[in-house]
Design a protein around this nucleic acid. Structure first.
Lengths: 349, 349
DNA sequence: AGTTAGCACTCCATGACGGTGAGTGCTAAC
DNA sequence: GTTAGCACTCACCGTCATGGAGTGCTAACT
């Protein structure tokens, strides 16, 4: 399909489309034939450009906001441009200036991801989203029980990727230290290496049988283990630089801005985006343009996402949200470089 | 000072001021003498109202945006009104409808506070801020060391109010389980009940002397303890319902809205507000009006804050941000009821 | 046949203009 | 002390003319 349309676009039409996209990126105003011929050295007269633009409009790559105004790239136009760009673009990994900072800034994955989101927003002047890591099969690595005060236990659960979750549980009766130690050991023996699905009734019963006076503790611990694993699997999404995107004239209208912010606030809706990003091809960059967005509030924006890895597994997504006319070229480039360094950093932690 | 001005305001002027504040709250438009006499049963003619308004303006309680326009309450006018209200208002504790929900929703303090912020934003249609609890003197309750894999230790630190912080530390060399257990016991013996200030060089040295081959572990654990306590003492501030405030016409201008959102995003600046709120009189409600705000982006807003308690100690703040003409009366009322229930809930956890 | 100059036309943005409505302050009468 | 009346101000709104930037079409040029 796209290939077919590509063939229809001769070199001159392509140059003009690119020029329109570039001019519109810079001015945010519909671009006309005359201004195009002035600013770009196309070697043809405005009249010729007009003819070509008329063709491009017929093909659906550009649109007129109203008769006798200049042209604006359509979603389809951007789609075409972006698909072409993704094929052509050389992966040129320049070292990002803020990588050094990041390297030293954080020893926890969450903090690192937060810094990345913040830095990327600052650097691109767009809004960024970062999802927390999400492990497909979350295995239990270690469970620790600590008495913090009488009848109160602290349960610490370490899972894959050294994610730690801790819970406080209240008991009906006190429990002596020796029993607690033994229970801890037994629980670990039974649960280490298991995923949520692996923990069936038989495992639970076996555990409960092991200690008669420990039944309360064990069943409460198991509750908490389930909670923890569910929590680890919960994808959290964080956004940075929300106000960055408000500076672009397309969001001058408060109602548009408000809708967008509302969408950013309701992070739930990003989870789909994160999931499809994670499931898409390794190392690929996904671009969603304008109306292609399923979320209402984002239809005025474009979204560039890619996934990051921990221990070789795709576990989370990083995305950039900008106006439809955003600078796809260098933003994609930027994101590619970033993700490369991020993957390295994450695997070092 | 305020008392003196109060005396200057006879009953009629007061009624007029209240009427202006109320009308402006409802319409967000400057209010004139004629419309005032129509909508409120003041028993006097517009001409008389005009004379009174002229006086009120001279006293600084109301202002004219431009000659021959209606009047708008000034910060001083609101301040006067609000101070009076706070003195008069009966604390009438109606049960909040969403309290039941909150009761069941959360078992962790952070989750509960999050729900509260969200609910309060929904209910008031303003933006809310909630600070995380901040304990004056944070004592160490329990420290636990767990080997999660070779050369990798998990350090769990439980402090006052059952706040839990956990850290992963990497070691140069493996450590056997027995030594680890002993170190854990010794560390707890030495550090339990101490605050950050209590941990001086002599404590550290004593600890290090206890185990020759445990020096690395001990010094790394102490590092982490310091970090944890600092983290517990760090006040985090969360905001909810950011878009709520954008619906008010005073923020129709995108630049004003953007400034406000920027202020909300830069949560650091709220910490002063939180601190002064926590330090102010027990159970009191603090109101900051318009230009009284120190933060640039908030000068167009008003802020109503109060503190919540855990174990009798004021540990955090809850606040509501609305337009200057917000409904101080019922918002304060609302906040008072909320905080009463919240304090109860928090102390049950 | 492809390219270009010229021309008529469209539409948006801008600024001037006048009328309207809501407001004020002042004065004089009640 | 209160109020009616009046002159005046100012924001707001619709209308109108103007200018600029753009288009599409046609005819002439290479």
């Amino acid at each position: 399909m796209i290939g077919g349309e590509h063939l229809e676009l001769n070199k001159r039409k392509l140059r003009i489309l690119k020029a329109i996209i570039n001019d519109y990126f810079e001015t945010a105003e519909p671009v006309g034939s005359r201004s195009l011929s002035r600013h770009y050295d196309l070697g043809i007269s405005p009249a010729t450009i007009r003819n070509e633009m008329s063709d491009l409009e017929e093909l659906g790559f550009i649109m007129q906001p109203h008769t006798s105004s200049g042209r604006v790239p359509s979603d389809k136009g951007y789609r075409f441009y972006v698909d072409m760009m993704l094929q052509i673009q050389q992966a040129e990994f320049t070292k990002l200036v803020y990588m050094e900072e990041l390297k030293n800034s954080a020893s926890r994955i969450e903090d690192l991801l937060k810094n990345i989101g913040q830095q990327l927003a600052n650097q691109t002047n767009y809004t960024t989203i970062v999802s927390s890591p999400h492990y497909k099969k979350c295995k239990i690595k270690n469970i620790q029980l600590v008495e913090v005060e009488a009848k109160t236990l602290l349960v610490v659960i370490v899972t894959d990727g050294n994610t730690i979750k801790d819970y406080i549980i209240k008991l009906e009766q006190t429990i002596n230290q020796r029993l607690l130690n033994n229970i801890t050991i037994t629980i670990n023996e039974h649960l280490q290496g298991l995923t949520l699905n692996d923990i069936g009734l038989n495992v639970i019963n076996k555990l409960k049988d092991a200690y008669e006076d420990g039944e309360e503790v064990i069943s409460k611990v198991i509750d908490v283990v389930f909670k923890a694993i569910k929590n680890v699997n919960k994808t959290d999404v964080y956004t940075y630089g929300t106000t960055n995107i408000l500076q672009y004239p397309e969001f001058n209208d408060i109602s548009k801005a408000s809708n967008l912010i509302k969408a950013l606030e309701a992070k739930d809706v990003f989870k789909d985006i994160v999931n499809t990003t994670i499931e898409s091809e390794d190392g690929s960059v996904k671009i969603v343009i304008g109306e292609e967005n399923e979320m209402e509030g984002l239809k005025g924006c474009s979204l560039i996402t890619t996934s990051y890895h921990i221990n070789g597994e795709k576990v989370g997504a990083i995305g950039i949200i900008g106006p439809r006319r955003m600078d796809y070229d260098s933003t994609v480039q930027n994101l590619r470089c970033l993700i490369k360094s991020v993957d390295e950093l994450l695997n070092k932690l």
